[in-house]
Design a protein around this nucleic acid. Structure first.
Lengths: 344, 344
DNA sequence: TTTTTTTGTTTAAACGTTTAAACAAAACTA
DNA sequence: TAGTTTTGTTTAAACGTTTAAACAAAAAAA
């Protein structure tokens, strides 16, 4: 591999010290450097196509201009959409992003975080897996600024940007009730992650508030790394109840995408045979033959706010920011009422 | 920010030189170091929770263990699926990935590539935008190993891993002909990118071979960063022809997802009113009420082979590898014949 | 015993930057 | 004129590693 051009090369060519070249190229010591030499240095840098070695720069300045992003799975549209927003917002602030997928596994998030710390990232945006509290405490000790995204742990005093899951679910489910549903199934995840628990809570309290006693048999929880099979079984069971459900609430894009594929196969007519509500937008939202009534998360804002919060933390450490952004209910054909949007 | 633990700290604590600590922790000079000291160093490193500073290491060794990945848009499922595969395969080889989205713009890919080079990545996997030839020559001059993915430029002698676009399209379109279609519309992109041109070629030659004269009015090309509107207009025009089309071939997941949403709205019955073939799998494949006949790209293999090729190049420079992996036709309901898979 | 070899450890330079401090020469000031 | 300030540049240390080379002490060979 051909040797790269360094400050030294420029210095030699021009016949000055390395320091001077550095000063000129970084516009330091304004006005104290002669125009003539200054120009010569710039021209030579240009001619040699000099590009500063960020690694050396980082070692010296203790700043890498890199932020780490840990998501559940970059292949999931939820993660990749957020990743893209974060990439753009980071770029605006002159940061580069390293991504890692945890697959909802503690060992993996731990490994990824360590790789990032070893690389001296300036900050981390982190969608933690269940039981990642110890890892978060570890991160706190490391003193590297970080903000959680999408998920959070009620007990922990850390920065996060999330969505008002409980309220959003509540509003969505209440909409189902208004649409005439009385036996509303729920497919969520068997997990301790509070943002997912909150979605269940919202569902339960909407029913309760409307005088509907929640039957345990309506609630199905699949593993967080679920496959098509388990979702299928859950739906099957809900439809096979003595009093089958008349509506179904999918608690995330993953279960909804898997579930709708199965419902497609079954030939069920939505919304007539079954009404559908889904948390999260996705391609399914408009591709399903009945456009989906769904809870739309403000991914754009979530990503931007996460980066902005982090940037603040990186420049001057601050008090804790804990943000719940409002999601909104978007009404489609799958709940059988007219299509309007309303904020939660 | 609390000072990080360095080799120096360990050396001081144990009372030995920095060099010795480095040797022990890297298992160099096997057998030449006394068990006693060796253990003491390891224990102290553990106790202080020492983590090597990769930046310093990289500066010295001239190796960052990082590879850059440039995709069109990480938010697109095609890119994010590949990104995930690459992440995993890179990890196996002890590499970390930096991603950037070019949005099909030369300025953006240029900027991203430069950021990556400045960060001294060990290699690059690159899905180039149209007219990125000069950038590729620039990359060649930089001597950093790279392999193109998904796209390639027939003229250039560079490594790439792509798919047999022409053949795959040919087979798919021939399948439409066999299904009885005679007026097959094509929605692709207005671009010079050869992999997309190849898809058009395959389409054209399949028709020609089967005695069908291709009408210019059947071919619609939208901008590569197209919006829903343009795809909609294209479909509208195809359906409004004096002799409307009886089948439609979408040349990528993006146009097919956008197109199908519109077809949904239109209330057209697939496959009776219109048969559909799509290049690329996506959520739409199973979510559309008629499962899609589509050309399935071997994303998994593409990602893996790309990383493996790159890893080889990074260890020992080699001759050029140019690979076209076979895509296969997956037959769904959208072309109205029975469902079997067949290799292309 | 002296010489040679082996063993265990340290010294020191280097990677490509940044930046405080030193310095010499030129330009003021008194 | 000598002293002071300003201007333009260089010196040198540092960031946290790696690693060739040097070295001292112990062990083996003569």
């Amino acid at each position: 591999m051909k040797k790269k051009v360094s400050l030294k090369d420029i210095a030699q060519k021009v016949g000055v010290s390395i320091a001077l070249v550095s000063y000129v190229l970084n516009n330091k010591k304004q006005g104290r450097i002669s125009e003539e030499i200054s120009k010569k240095i710039r021209d030579t840098a240009q001619k040699l196509n000099y590009r500063p070695n960020q690694i050396a720069k980082s070692l010296k300045t203790n700043k890498t201009n890199t932020i780490g992003l840990v998501v559940a799975d970059i292949a999931n549209p939820f993660s990749s959409t957020i990743a893209r927003i974060i990439e753009d917002e980071a770029e605006k602030n002159n940061y580069t992003v390293i991504v890692g997928s945890s697959d909802e596994k503690e060992e993996r998030s731990k490994r990824i975080i360590n790789v990032m710390l070893d690389r001296q990232v300036d900050g981390i945006i982190f969608a933690p897996a269940a039981n990642d509290q110890p890892l978060i405490e570890y991160l706190q000790k490391s003193k590297v600024p970080f903000v959680l995204i999408d998920r959070y742990f009620p007990g922990l005093k850390v920065n996060y940007v999330a969505v008002n899951n409980t309220e959003a679910s509540f509003t969505g489910v209440e909409h189902l009730v208004m649409a005439g549903c009385r036996r509303i199934g729920f497919i969520g995840f068997k997990t301790t992650l509070s943002h997912l628990q909150d979605r269940k809570k919202g569902y339960q309290s909407a029913l309760k508030k409307n005088g509907i006693t929640v039957s345990k048999s309506w609630i199905k929880e699949v593993p967080i790394d679920t496959s098509a099979e388990e979702v299928k079984e859950a739906i099957k069971a809900l439809l096979a109840l003595p009093e089958p459900i008349d509506a179904l609430f999918f608690a995330s894009n993953k279960v909804s995408t898997l579930g709708l594929k199965y419902i497609n196969r079954l030939g069920l007519k939505v919304p007539n045979d079954l009404k559908i509500l889904s948390f999260d937008q996705s391609d399914a939202t408009d591709l399903f033959y009945a456009t989906l009534t769904h809870i739309r998360q403000p991914l754009d804002e979530m990503g931007k706010v996460a980066v902005q919060t982090l940037v603040e933390l990186m420049t001057r450490p601050k008090k804790i920011t804990q943000i719940h952004l409002p999601a909104k209910l978007v009404i489609g054909q799958s709940t059988g009422v007219n299509t309007i949007e309303q904020p939660v």
